[in-house]
Design a protein around this nucleic acid. Sequence first.
DNA 1: GTGGCTGCAAAGTCTTTGCACGAGT
DNA 2: ACTCGTGCAAAGACTTTGCAGCCAC
Lengths: 163, 163
Amino acid sequence: MQKLSVNNFSYLSSKTLTLKIVETLKLHHLKATPQRLVIMQVLSESAVHPTAEQLFEQVQATHPTISLGTIYKTLETLHEAGLAQKVHVADSAQRWDANIHPHHHIFCSDTGEIVDFEDEELDRLINNYFLKKNISNFTPGQIQLQLNGVKINPNQPIKYHGH
Amino acid sequence: MQKLSVNNFSYLSSKTLTLKIVETLKLHHLKATPQRLVIMQVLSESAVHPTAEQLFEQVQATHPTISLGTIYKTLETLHEAGLAQKVHVADSAQRWDANIHPHHHIFCSDTGEIVDFEDEELDRLINNYFLKKNISNFTPGQIQLQLNGVKINPNQPIKYHGH
DNA sequence: GTGGCTGCAAAGTCTTTGCACGAGT
DNA sequence: ACTCGTGCAAAGACTTTGCAGCCAC
């Protein structure tokens, strides 16, 4: 089945994004409920890799009746459908990423900030390496790299060449 | 301060390992209590990257009076001293690793198994890459790679060239 | 109409905390 | 002796679950 990433459409207007989300949900045989639409939209427009709780707070601003339980269930459902990724970092509740394209993470241990890092050259490098390296009794899948460190100026964003 | 990894001494007899652990603790100005000795010994001899609970069960076999709370506190203390690493994987409580040498992880999403992966060539490759790549407003530290996948034969261990 | 989804609240799991006592230095 | 560490139990944080009613299809 074709997989559509929710947040590869950030150039779209909010209305068009909603349509795209509806389409994506239907492709995965999931009902396009208003709750799911909001949650997916907020997650896909977020840059912070939010926790369920953070997502809940943001969603509440416009949809105060959506419950925290629904956020949890929806995120798990999206994950099972391959529409959201879990991100695991130190000393934090489960965090979420709408970017389902294989990618890496830069993690600031001071602020807890996570920045997506995507680079073909790096992927080629690592993939070539593991092709040479024989790992027996194991079928490799996604490779995820995490670059830990600290921000120099906490008020400025982390950037990298290619952004 | 010199940092000693607890589990770099697996070739040592149990008695010598204990002495090494005492020495390591004192180096870090931590009291060498029997509880800490057992916990460090069990962790350093474990291959499964155990959770606090799993460690507790193993410790109980020989030291039934050590409490779970002490396991948690001890692990956190060891972590702060740089003597134990946290390992974050999907759908699991916090897991622990006595190997504090920078290294990577192979993770089987079927069995939850984690295998340490250490290779100089890979580290050189990645470090060179990030030296070229300019990431601004960020002081990079440890790079951790996780190779996700599934075991082919669940009853056999995962191995790789160089093991 | 029906099956899947939601809201609610309760329960479950994992982890931290406070405190009095005990032990290592 | 003094300070740090431990055991215990309670509390806290995070997440899942059960179920009745509702809504997208």
